[in-house]
Design a protein around this nucleic acid. Sequence first.
DNA 1: CATGAATGAGTGTTCATTCAT
DNA 2: GATGAATGAACACTCATTCAT
Lengths: 220, 220, 220, 220
Amino acid sequence: MQTQDHNGTDEVHAKRARRKQARPGELLAAALDLFVEKGFAATRAEEVAAHAGVSKGTLFLYFQSKEELFKAVVRETLAGRFETWSIEIKLFEGSTADMLRYAMNEWWKHLGATKASGISKLMMSEACNFPELAEFYHQEVIVPGQKLIETILQRGIDQGEFTVTDMRYAVLGVMAPMVFLINWKHSLGMCTGLNYPIDPDQFINNQLQIMLQGLVKRTP
Amino acid sequence: MQTQDHNGTDEVHAKRARRKQARPGELLAAALDLFVEKGFAATRAEEVAAHAGVSKGTLFLYFQSKEELFKAVVRETLAGRFETWSIEIKLFEGSTADMLRYAMNEWWKHLGATKASGISKLMMSEACNFPELAEFYHQEVIVPGQKLIETILQRGIDQGEFTVTDMRYAVLGVMAPMVFLINWKHSLGMCTGLNYPIDPDQFINNQLQIMLQGLVKRTP
Amino acid sequence: MQTQDHNGTDEVHAKRARRKQARPGELLAAALDLFVEKGFAATRAEEVAAHAGVSKGTLFLYFQSKEELFKAVVRETLAGRFETWSIEIKLFEGSTADMLRYAMNEWWKHLGATKASGISKLMMSEACNFPELAEFYHQEVIVPGQKLIETILQRGIDQGEFTVTDMRYAVLGVMAPMVFLINWKHSLGMCTGLNYPIDPDQFINNQLQIMLQGLVKRTP
Amino acid sequence: MQTQDHNGTDEVHAKRARRKQARPGELLAAALDLFVEKGFAATRAEEVAAHAGVSKGTLFLYFQSKEELFKAVVRETLAGRFETWSIEIKLFEGSTADMLRYAMNEWWKHLGATKASGISKLMMSEACNFPELAEFYHQEVIVPGQKLIETILQRGIDQGEFTVTDMRYAVLGVMAPMVFLINWKHSLGMCTGLNYPIDPDQFINNQLQIMLQGLVKRTP
DNA sequence: CATGAATGAGTGTTCATTCAT
DNA sequence: GATGAATGAACACTCATTCAT
């Protein structure tokens, strides 16, 4: 050991450090998978550790408790998502209806279809137990998401394409079905035996159709 | 003597019966409160009993297991509603747009606004871990609810009022915002500090407006 | 009530008394059945009461506790069994081998085949928990049984038919297989799925054959 | 470093392994003691753990359930014996009468006299309530035991030493007294106050004498 | 740093026993 | 006397967390 201390410390430390830096990420990824699949309470700490390829003890070396792990998962997964979209939207050319269509399909492709969408279900169940997280989630996800939607709707109004009575609730009206879709996907939609599949593309397209044209027959 | 015995017995039985009949209701009420507040898994059987003012053992006198208790709660608070509504819908006179408006407002008044609506959030979190409950909920609540919506939409089509491209997804389109509304109410909406209140009536009215007329400006 | 007190008390009391006297017997019979079938611990007090056609509470009106009930069952079931046999044996005419054969078959018919034989298995399991009962059982059943066997063997010796090296162990040698038979019958023999039936008559006959003639080939 | 790490790890593993290897044995010993003393159902898992000097949780680290613990006890203390005996029997030289004598005395020395013999009584009481255990015991203990006896008797027949009318019941005839002996030892034989000691050696010798020669006087 | 053996508080459920009616 | 609703102690088993190695 002494001998090694002389010539290998730096190297070893580097390796260790690299490994140490990788660990939290691996643990967080494993935790996301499992929390989303089974919920917070039903996910065993040991299982998370195993999925990350480390031992039970190591998990607690990096996260004080299962609750802290959960918080870290939510924070980590949601770090800066909406900026890119915001820019993309500003550059979009075409009708606002197409923009909305585009935005919703993009959202599904890059968020709804990914594991990250499972966070929504998680927050739903655990919001009350982790109020700080709820607030964080609200600020980091809900608010930016709503801003994005508002931007789109406002463009529609400004360009004389859309009619919106109450912006705040119009935004919620766009958001609600998307939230429903991912929550369903990660809860009842996952239960085998239900045999009630929702095709996300069809769901989104239909939703767009209704939102844009409404159910009431138009007299041409 | 016989007469007296008879009278006496009946009286006793009556009191007993009254108590025995009251218990399940008290337990169900307590269970609903706690399940909604803390989730199914996180609610301890003893706690439910305590809230109902009885001991742990008594709970199991009336419900075979925690799962059965949950099912009873669902049956009691949700499953029973749909029959009445189904009849009410059939007797409704007026435009189908008005019918939808009426239905959604009634739904909010009698379900959404009550504690029972918290069960939806509950199912979201527990569906994967208790597949039997998920299936039960699907059969007893989701399916009847969707049938109701379908009946309304079909009436709209039949009377030449509505245009529906895909019935299945149209139904989901009606259902999604309502589910979102109650899930929000019992999760993020409950967290103090968020300061993001959703007024259910406004939400529903706006939703109706969008669903019926669409966002796209109509050329009169 | 007052009125009735005047002309009906005696009759009622008589009925009650009769019923009260019958109750313990019915309870003991039910308890014997269930204790033998399922063991002491696995038999629920309520079940015993139900089998006797009374309510749970009533059981504890007659027996202080489940343990007292058990003691009463054993005591009651074994009250005076061996006197009759003792007399019968004395009057028997024929070879002692025949007498032994007769005795063992009678024993099976009148004890081994009856529910009472289940007590043996019970005592086996519970002897250490109820030492007084063990002693009682020993005095009331084991000792008289052994005396009976000894009487038979002694007759065999006296008449020059049998050779016995050590009377005490010879007696045990006769007793052991019979005890084994009833214990097996009420334990492993009862388990469905074992598919290992022991026919008591064949068992007894074979046992007699071995006991009398031995396994070693006789040179005629 | 590698070398050191390796050495260090091995050392640690060795110590750990030694401890991990010792635990099951300690737990099995404790379990045997308690199961025999109090029965399967009446023995609390925590008590077994305490007797082994560990906590409740540790028991379940090594044995999946109480039933598995019991099976392990049976495997450890009983099931393993029969193979050795089977070989020993095959190598035996001498008369079959001597072989039987040898076998029964060996059985007593290595099984009957040990705590393991208490399992027989245990099975008697619990067979009906734990059918899986009963079947396991039957397959792992009864069947091999009977095979062993059959082998001996068959040798006696083959060498012209024994006469056996019905092999199956002859086997039971050898087995029955031995089972009786150990059951007695662990039940009534244990109750102080009975003052009815059975000397196992005398019992076995007498049993052999009767089994081999029979009670009926031989005319030389 | 990493491990995994050990812990012990916590949970659903059962059942002998009590006691108001 | 008789009932059966209510009790609460008990028990098998789980799992987040600790800590000696």
